[in-house]
Design a protein around this nucleic acid. Structure first.
Length: 741
DNA sequence: TACTGGATTATTTTT
DNA sequence: TAATCCAGTA
């Protein structure tokens, strides 16, 4: 008992309340940095302390990394037994359940897990097979729609019904149906299927459901604001028996609407569980008040949210820095320079810094600058390790060994490395497989019986034959040994070695790294299997690779930063069209802008002590230079929170492409930005209807006289002497000057 | 069958 | 800009 006391002593009143409320549904509204992880870990520890078996506790986290951390922290609190708790992500949990029971819903338990690339390949095949016009029907669109259907528990039948008589919708429904058929035939599930099929399993098999309800009597869901419909149903089913469901979330940090996250899950929690208790955590232990005030000011502009008051007693701290750059290059340089300066003057470590940006495409410049400045950095996101060609190739071999029905995997590697099997042959095999309703691999095995393939048969056999050997070796050879044999037997390694290029060397190195991962899996798993390895690999997130104990500057997207914190945070690209992104602006949907604003809130609240916001006037967007206005989010932060002088300096540098008024109506702001962007990107120098000496008028600055016009390449740079505001330089495309008659 | 080069087109964010 | 696609050639 006394152990529990010390444990609760480190908690504030609300936190303690949340820890002690163990029976019945509980909603913890935990603002950024209010110690929700501490509450969760202490709560789990308390449960165990109360005699609840660790076996009966389930905790769903957002990433594998968060799961590991939580398990470790609970372990430190309670000692032995913590390894019995299920702590994992939604996807891993479902995969684990399905590995046992997928056969009850018509799959084999060794099913493959398709990543987005694989799914895309399936869609592409369908589009090709049906000769659809690729101008009209995009794989991306189908994929997004199918994913959305699955997240909303809409099956192919429902989908067809919903489509009504709309031609495009009917086509989508047909593609969806075919896609499902393909995956089923390949004994494969995509990411969404993991959840959907678990729900189906629970709904069709009362015995299995009951078993897991009994097992998970105490359920915890972290980042609840980012759950979608299927996840909600999954949770509801599991909790239906004991009702001991504790969810933690912050509606202001919901940033995954695009993948189906349904904010009403958290907003309406009390509706679904009328007996629910709600506890709000509002004391922030992370940031200084300047940072917190900025975050609060930004998020206050959102309408769809629960009002809350986050506060801190960490002191006011440093004011917020900002930097207005000419180019993205300049911006990166300044940030890197700032890091170096702080390393010298404040005695910081590299790992104190995080550079955040809206899109992965922005990362490259920072990478370059870090290399140039000799700063060790860790890039999170971008090209996933497991998405690299050589990795996917080798995994496809492993998948084909594991699940011969996996057509996507088999097709991927039938001619990799080159075996002289061309598209024509591959199509014939696929055709034969289709006609005889067998798998692609099996069709390849009997290539010698397929009309027109006799000549290629030997080459195809050289592909299929080794698989029989590998499959029979599975029981007595180690995974890593089979891996080595694949590299040798297929000549994959030899082919790369022969290339003698830097790129090939890098690929070889990546393969070595993959081998290391196999070895470490073999060492850590209690019963290592090929199946298990493939599952683990399919569900790792980029963020899982973040090494929090080593000394690196971290580069990542704002999304990636969720749940993390850093002493010093840089948020770059604070420009309309970048952040908020142009899709959000174009959509005209205020909800989209609000999502971006939440993302901004998440970004700001990552900072503990120092925050710098930066933007660039000029930015290269898909090969085109674009001039953009500063982000509206910047305007939403009270000026007095910024470092004194920071803005005067900006004003000068910013000249006046289009003024950003702090007082002006926000509404016109958005439409201006839109107009400006469109001009900057879409047009090439419309002829001007005024010349030097003409009287013109500007929307904001009023009347003035044109004193100079300079051809700036893409646009004219116009100098105007305004009657009331003095001389300003501006680009004609932005200024929208009207000639006065 | 494999490779080259020109054309085309795409852009959030991630399990 | 960068990745992907397609047509024509070896």
């Amino acid at each position: 008992m006394e152990k529990t006391y010390t444990l609760s002593d480190t908690l504030n009143r609300e936190q303690k309340e949340a820890v002690l409320h163990t029976e019945g549904p509980l909603l913890i509204l935990a603002g950024a940095g209010t110690g929700k992880t501490r509450v969760l870990t202490n709560r789990i520890a308390w449960l165990i302390e109360q005699g609840v078996s660790p076996r009966h506790i389930l905790a769903i986290t957002f990433t594998n990394k968060a799961a590991d951390e939580m398990r470790e922290r609970v372990g430190r609190l309670v000692g032995a037994g913590s390894d019995q708790i299920w702590v994992s992500t939604f996807h891993s949990s479902c995969a684990r359940i399905l590995r046992r029971y997928a056969d009850r819903i018509g799959y084999q338990n060794n099913f493959s897990i398709y990543d987005t690339d694989d799914s895309k390949s399936v869609i592409k095949e369908i589009i090709k097979k049906w000769n659809l016009d690729t101008k009209v029907y995009k794989d991306r669109t189908f994929l997004a729609k199918i994913s959305s259907f699955k997240n909303h528990l809409v099956d192919t039948e429902d989908c067809m019904e919903l489509a009504g008589s709309d031609v495009d919708e009917i086509m989508t429904a047909r593609v969806y149906k075919e896609y499902e058929a393909q995956l089923k035939k390949s004994n494969a599930m995509d990411f969404d299927d993991l959840l959907l099929n678990t729900v189906r399993l629970f709904q069709t098999d009362a015995q299995v459901l009951e078993q897991y309800q009994e097992r998970f009597r105490y359920i915890h869901i972290d980042e609840y604001q980012d759950t979608n419909k299927v996840q909600f149903v999954f949770v509801r089913l599991l909790a239906a028996k004991y009702h001991n469901l504790c969810v933690v979330g912050d509606d202001d940090q919901s940033i995954y609407r695009f993948r189906g996250a349904d904010i009403s899950n958290i907003l309406d929690f009390e509706k679904y569980f009328p007996e629910a208790k709600t506890i709000r955590l509002e004391q922030n232990y992370r940031s200084t008040s300047n940072i917190l005030d900025a975050a609060n000011a930004v998020i206050a502009n959102n309408r769809a949210r629960k009002k809350k008051h986050l506060w801190t007693d960490q002191g006011t701290g440093e004011k917020i820095a900002c930097y207005s750059a000419q180019t993205a290059y300049d911006e990166a340089e300044h940030i890197i320079e700032d890091i170096r300066k702080k390393m010298r003057t404040e005695g910081r470590k590299y790992s104190d810094f995080a550079i955040l940006y809206r899109t992965n495409a922005q990362s490259r410049i920072f990478e370059e600058k870090c290399i140039g400045a000799n700063i060790p950095y860790q890039l999170i996101g971008g090209v996933n390790f497991y998405a690299r060609k050589e990795i996917k190739d080798m995994l496809a071999y492993l998948k084909t060994i594991n699940n011969g029905m996996d057509d996507i995997a088999a097709r991927r590697i039938i001619n990799v490395p080159k075996r002289g099997i061309g598209q024509a042959s591959i199509d014939k095999i696929a055709q034969h497989a289709f006609e005889n309703d067998i798998t692609f691999f099996d069709a390849a095995v009997r290539a010698d019986q397929i009309v027109g393939l006799q000549r290629a048969a030997a080459r195809i056999a050289s592909f299929t034959e080794p698989f029989f050997k590998w499959r029979s070796c599975l029981d007595y050879l180690k995974l890593s040994e089979i891996f080595d044999d694949i590299l040798e037997t297929t000549g994959y390694r030899a082919e790369l070695e022969a290339e003698q290029t830097e790129e090939a060397a890098e690929r070889l190195q990546n393969l070595e790294e993959l081998r290391n991962k196999i070895v470490s899996y073999e060492e850590s798993a209690e019963t290592p299997t090929l199946n298990g390895f493939l599952q683990e690999v399919a569900l790792v997130a980029e963020i899982d690779s973040l090494e929090s104990h080593s000394d690196y500057v971290v580069l990542m997207t704002l999304h990636g930063a969720k749940g993390l914190e850093f002493p010093v945070v840089y948020i770059s690209g604070m420009e309309e069209g970048v952040f908020p992104g142009m899709l959000a602006i174009y959509s005209g949907d205020e909800g989209e802008i609000e999502e971006e604003r939440r993302l901004c809130y998440v970004g700001i609240t990552r900072a503990r002590e120092e925050l710098m916001l930066s933007w660039s006037r000029l930015r290269m967007v898909r090969g085109e230079q674009m001039y953009q206005k500063t982000s509206r989010f910047l305007e939403e932060i009270p000026k007095e929170l910024f470092q004194p002088g920071a803005f005067e300096h900006q004003e000068k540098k910013r000249i006046s492409f289009e003024d950003n008024s702090y007082t002006d109506a926000k509404a016109s702001f958005a439409s201006n930005a839109f107009a400006g962007m469109k001009k900057a990107s879409a047009f090439t120098k419309a002829p001007l209807d005024y010349t030097t000496g003409d009287r013109v008028s500007h929307m904001k600055f009023g009347p003035g006289t044109v004193t100079a016009i300079q051809d700036g390449g893409r646009d004219y740079e116009v100098t105007v002497d305004f009657d009331r505001f003095g001389v300003k330089h501006m680009f004609a495309g932005f200024a929208k000057l009207k000639k006065q008659e």
